[in-house]
Design a protein around this nucleic acid. Structure first.
Lengths: 253, 253
DNA sequence: CCAATAAGTTGATCTCGATCAATGCGAACT
DNA sequence: AGTTCGCATTGATCGAGATCAACTTATTGG
């Protein structure tokens, strides 16, 4: 998909992928040989086609996984069909939590997706017995928590236009971060890894409203359509401004 | 305030409070004497009057704190004044995160509040060097993450009435959990520790809409007003049903 | 290459919650 | 007791986004 994936894939795939839950790789300074061996033994990969479920809310979750490439959504659907995505999973994001055997949300692949995974009980033991893995997981979880809280501001208080802008801005930032670039600036391109419906589920909007906002933003010159799933953004800063940010760049402190 | 506070306060206050970030107390099986002594030496208490800020977004956060009694909100305010509360902090909830020196949100005391706190650098060291403290913190953070994601469903997809019901249900559940009771049932009472404004900021609604929904729910017999800040709920189950839950009790799996 | 189907856009209308504005109510102070 | 001030409720109106519906554009398969 993005440059991120190809970059990840080439980093010593035979030892350990570059975006495992603990971000382990061959040069991890804190890992001794026994730990690496244990991780390798417990690790496996699995592919999912777009639309395929990676987990079903309420059902057993046998593995702790981390996205290697592709994109998935984590969502809850109410009885009457209303659906809210609570997290967009991109490479390096994890699925599952130590000590819990049941999935709390539905996780569905939005595009073809590869995950790196660990059998749950093995992983639980690894977290319990390996301090620096637990620490690494804590940092990742705290980051996810901040992201979830930031998103609550979008869902609770932003207009449709601001929501769409905030989504594009956050997607562009995550892609840039994954490829090791800094804060995006100026003219940038985004490939959307999801449908208008998945986008709307994430934004708490209907498909129609999302579509109309995109059209309006095209008219205003904020975005240009390469095709329906790819945009060119002439000014990232202008978009970020609409997404309700200070003009000094970066997310609100 | 609630029964929770008095119950907490009496558990060996001279050794360690019962709701410190790591839920340490005199009988913690995993803590040796040195660790306990280190915790005690680093610990202090501080009181805040209702309305007083515990932290300001973007400014230095010198301590890692845990609510002992009272109630605080964690929120972000956009430039134009729109405000969204991203977390309601009740006893045992923590403020701050290891390894970060700056507050990400505004934290304000909603009622008179007491916190138990640790000087930041000391706490960072403690988390780094004491595996079971890191593990405990990881569990708490994962729980917060689930709560934040659950709330995203409320903010993104629920109607005003459902939002108010969901808020009351979650508040009642947290109170019950804090006092060691199980799932609430039947006729229950809630004391609201916050104003209509703070409630609205949490729900992503205006004060007027929140007030109207409360009035409507009174008319429908779902809630009875003891006073403006305290309700009697004749049927917790009926309220939970409106809050968009399955009828088998408990949050959706 | 053209049907068939899914995904996306656009239009018309309606509704829920926001907004603007006034009134009610209770606690704190004199 | 009455005044004041902040909080809460109620009323009237407006508008952003939802809904219902038609249509267009991609994508897939024969």
């Amino acid at each position: 998909m993005s440059q991120a994936v190809s970059r990840m894939a080439q980093s010593s795939p035979n030892i350990s992928c570059g975006n495992c839950p603990i971000r382990h790789n061959a040069v991890c300074a804190e890992c001794d040989k026994d730990e690496l061996a244990a991780l390798e033994a417990a690790k496996s990969y699995r592919s999912f086609a777009a639309g395929e479920p990676l987990a079903v809310s309420g059902e057993a979750l046998t593995h702790f996984s981390s996205i290697v490439s592709g994109c998935a959504s984590m969502s809850r659907t109410l009885e009457d069909g209303r659906r809210q995505t609570v997290g967009l999973l991109l490479p390096s994001d994890f699925i599952g939590r130590p000590g819990r055997a049941t999935a709390a949300y539905d996780v569905v692949a939005l595009s073809d997706t590869v995950v790196c995974r660990f059998e749950r009980r093995t992983f639980d033991g690894l977290v319990r017995d390996t301090p620096h893995i637990a620490t690494r997981l804590l940092t990742m979880t705290l980051d996810e928590l901040d992201a979830a809280r930031d998103w609550a501001v979008v869902l609770g208080r932003m207009t449709a236009r601001e929501k769409v802008a905030a989504f594009l801005v956050s997607l562009i930032r995550r892609r840039a971060a994954a490829t090791g670039q800094g804060e995006p600036a100026g003219d940038v391109a985004v490939a959307l890894p999801l449908s208008r419906e998945a986008m709307s589920d994430h934004l708490g909007l209907t498909i129609e409203t999302t579509s109309r906002q995109i059209t309006a933003m095209k008219k205003d010159g904020l975005i240009q359509a390469i095709n329906t799933r790819a945009f060119r953004i002439p000014s990232f800063e202008a978009l970020a401004l609409i997404a309700g940010e200070d003009d000094d760049g970066g997310p609100i402190a």
